[in-house]
Amino acid sequence: MPPDSPGPGPGSGRDPGPPADPGDSSPPPGAPWWQRGGEPDYRATLANERTLLAWFRTALALLAASFVVVQLTDIAPRALRLALAGYLIALATGVTVTGYLQWRTRQARMRGRQPLGRGTSAPLLALALLLLAGFVVVVTVLAP
């Protein structure tokens, strides 16, 4: 570069911008959600994973209950037991999907340093369990 030409700098028109952070390894646009943002505090990540495991334990208990209802009871007609077991299986599937989606959403928000927000999963689960309680009452009333 000739000595009389302005070098790269704020007034030269060729401003390189702020120096690059050597620790900044920003993923390219369109990168998967788990590569965006920064690494969250490991304690928050572990707490989020424990919550996911609690959702999975709940789903497993519902699946076990569906097996018990179908195989080990004769207190109600088979059609009612199958309906109750089907509801339990559907509820277990819903709990699994909801738990995963909640985990993923919160993990992505933690990585992006965003507020966790409010979830709708607790009221939905409460409603589903109330429906289950009503179903059990109907099966009990109709049992011989």
Rank of each mutant, 00 (worst) to 15 (best):
G11V: 03
P40M: 11
V97Y: 06
Y100T: 11
A31K: 04
R43W: 11
S66L: 00
D41P: 11
G99R: 10
Q107K: 02
R57D: 14
R36Y: 03
R14E: 11
A128W: 04
A59V: 05
R109H: 08
R14L: 13
A64N: 05
F67Q: 07
G23F: 14
Q102W: 05
P8M: 10
V69N: 04
Y100A: 14
S25Y: 12
P16Y: 08
L132F: 14
A92T: 01
L63T: 12
R50F: 12
V68I: 14
Q114D: 04
L53E: 10
S25G: 13
G37R: 10
G94S: 03
T98A: 15
I75T: 11
G30C: 10
W33L: 10
P144C: 07
G37W: 09
G9T: 03
G23C: 10
V139Q: 08
P3A: 15
L116Y: 01
T45G: 05
A143F: 02
L84C: 01
L91T: 01
W55C: 14
S25K: 10
A76E: 08
V141W: 15
P3F: 02
M110R: 15
T120P: 01
P77D: 12
T140N: 06
S12E: 05
L72N: 11
P2F: 01
L53W: 09
P32Q: 08
L132S: 08
S5L: 06
P2E: 08
P16K: 07
W103F: 15
A133R: 05
L116M: 05
Q71H: 08
V138R: 05
G86P: 04
G37E: 07
L116N: 04
L130F: 12
P144I: 09
V141M: 13
T96V: 03
W34A: 07
A65M: 04
T93Q: 02
R14A: 12
L101G: 00
P40R: 11
G30E: 13
S121I: 05
T45E: 14
A128V: 02
L60C: 07
R57V: 12
A133I: 09
